[in-house]
Design a protein around this nucleic acid. Structure first.
Lengths: 362, 362
DNA sequence: CATTTTTGCACAATCGATGGTGCAATAACC
DNA sequence: GGTTATTGCACCATCGATTGTGCAAAAATG
């Protein structure tokens, strides 16, 4: 029935086959045919022909002509941790819901690479860009602005473009309170028992440090100090920070605030080099959620940013296109230890057979 | 110095500015100018103009004309677990190394969605597709074949296209031996103590089950049976399988083989509903690597597929384009408990300040 | 029946880049 | 100095779709 043409059918092929002009075919296929007063009869003929020929629109051609591509970009620093990969997953779903094609790229925390990557996206004429967790937001912003590309910052403070961010201050305060309360059950605490690891001189870290101190000060009734170990967003540097602390103090702090899951991986490396007893009495809080981290041998509280709310708000901001940059703050959720939340995976239909099957022969 | 033109410069703009023809400008900018005997002088003039105007090639136009886009696709089932997100990360790096732009999409284990997603990629004229962990490889293959799209399967057995797969059989055998040896230190084992959870009726699962049984049979000297709990690749179903087992036996098996990190999340959910004592004596093996899983309160052995080798081989296969499908097998790596490997993250340069900074004032 | 309206569609320019071809002007050669 | 080679570039069709415009034929109107 269908011709197994090796090459893809175009509107011109359908034009010849249907006897209609290419512009008519185009109008029928892109849905604008009513506006163009094409008869239902003609439209139906062309549509069925298109189906038979397995026609699909060449989106490069459409994009070229209409100077929009249907692509939306998401720039993350890295994929391979639960925060950003889950963001990618949610982003993809939300983009498709809006009829857009998601393109996720990573800038690897390198300002130069961030800009290059975004320029590539722009070269593909993406329609909008979500910027999450970049090192140099303003650099990326400028690239976007020059290209007239609508963009929003996700989980970043943007002076130049609208942003949706987690309530880092309050989230950190709640998280810190939780680990303090938990740790206090194991005996009286002193301020030096409570230390924050990770982060950078960026907005999110500053806010979290502020929240951390607010909770600590409220708990102990005095101003805390010398309780922040800045490491950047790198597992290696975080590991070194833990080693330094351990060498100096002969133990870990009883209460650990870890700035992100990436920093948490630094703690994992430290753990790999030390006996389990080192971790007997600690309580950790981490700003980010990872289900496996939640079940580590010590209590781990986590603050889970509300990714889907942030992205949804991001899409709203793109549509509304406010004249002046707007900052929206979204509460993260406190996750108690030993919690395995459902995620995007759970929307997946998986045809599952009964249960036991007989042993296979090797 | 530079005109802050709101719209992007094209070769026509540069043509006017330079006095050269558009085709000359094009040749200069795409590097084919020597072949076209454009003088160095002219080339340099145009190049400097291009820089001043911040010219960037419109890749949709180029793609339309040359009927290739510079895009390579990677189809995964889901992003948000360490295996696939790490694959996405590695894929991006390798694609860029080859001058290509990566486009990662998820098919969410839905045959229909898989095909639709791939068709979208094809509509953007991607040049090649990597297919990883899809439910219906043959369906996707047909879509690709019809479009004449070169593709390889990653970690999937492909009858119709070339594939690169993990050595699931041997990997599972090694992994099973490891957990058996470890568990045996805690007292004599019987075959019923050793159970595999997860998987599907797919090639990878079958191979792993074969390897699992091979190791078990070698260890116990008898054929094992009734030791497989098929759950599909879904956390929820896996959780239920653990609950069923627990309800029946009053305990978990001492030796758990978990088919993938996604299934492992099912165990996490089970853990969230049960006391820590239930996990006191168990030893787990998981086919996949997740650094946080490696530090859970019980010993977790993991088999880490060699993602970068698989992808590299995939690119090679695409370039070589063998006449008949080729299957390449790559050994996974056994990762002992409490191991935090370095990953793609470690290539990231992160400008890190010294150490302690003074307490910030809230 | 003549005129106005409406219907249904075709024509052609356009998006930005590519690459085959052709043609002057200059250089090389006998 | 006349002829052949070479250099250096311009012209133009093309990729596949979109969209403003124009114009017959059919229908509605008086």
């Amino acid at each position: 029935m269908t011709v197994q043409n090796s090459k893809k059918a175009t509107i011109y092929d359908l034009s010849v086959l249907s006897g209609a002009s290419a512009s008519t075919v185009s109008a029928v296929l892109n849905g604008s045919w009513r506006k163009r007063r094409i008869s239902t009869e003609t439209a139906e003929k062309i549509l069925s022909l298109a189906k038979a020929q397995r026609y699909t629109t060449n989106l490069q051609a459409r994009g070229l002509r209409s100077s929009k591509s249907g692509l939306v970009g998401l720039l993350v620093p890295v994929y391979d941790n639960r925060f950003f990969s889950s963001m990618a997953q949610t982003f993809e779903a939300q983009a498709r819901l809006r009829g857009l094609s998601p393109m996720v790229v990573s800038g690897r925390r390198d300002p130069e690479e961030e800009r290059r990557t975004v320029e590539t996206l722009i070269a593909y004429s993406i329609d909008a860009l979500f910027i999450a967790g970049v090192t140099d937001p303003d650099g990326v912003h400028q690239v976007c602005a020059r290209a007239g590309l609508p963009h929003v910052n996700i989980d970043l403070p943007g002076k130049l473009a609208s942003s949706v961010i987690s309530d880092n201050r309050n989230g950190a305060e709640v998280l810190t309170s939780a680990i303090l309360r938990h740790a206090a059950q194991g005996g009286a605490l002193v301020p030096d028992d409570v230390v924050l690891f990770g982060g950078h001189d960026d907005h999110a870290s500053r806010e979290r440090i502020t929240g951390f101190h607010a909770a600590k000060n409220a708990f102990f009734g005095i101003e805390s100090e010398n309780d922040i170990e800045i490491t950047g967003y790198s597992p290696r540097m975080t590991e070194l920070a833990f080693e330094r602390f351990f060498a100096r103090e002969g133990r870990l702090p009883r209460c650990l605030f870890i700035n992100s899951s990436i920093n948490f991986e630094g703690l994992l490396r430290f753990m790999g080099r030390h006996d389990e007893t080192v971790f007997n009495k600690i309580v950790a809080g981490c700003f980010d959620y990872d289900p496996f981290a939640s079940f580590l041998p010590f209590p781990v509280y986590m603050a889970k940013p509300n990714i889907s709310a942030m992205l949804e708000k991001g899409f709203e901001l793109l549509e509304a296109a406010p004249v002046h940059p707007v900052v929206t703050t979204i509460e993260p959720q406190l996750i108690p230890p030993r919690t395995a939340l459902e995620g995007p995976l759970d929307d997946i239909r998986d045809p599952v057979p009964a249960s036991r099957i007989p042993a296979s022969t090797s």
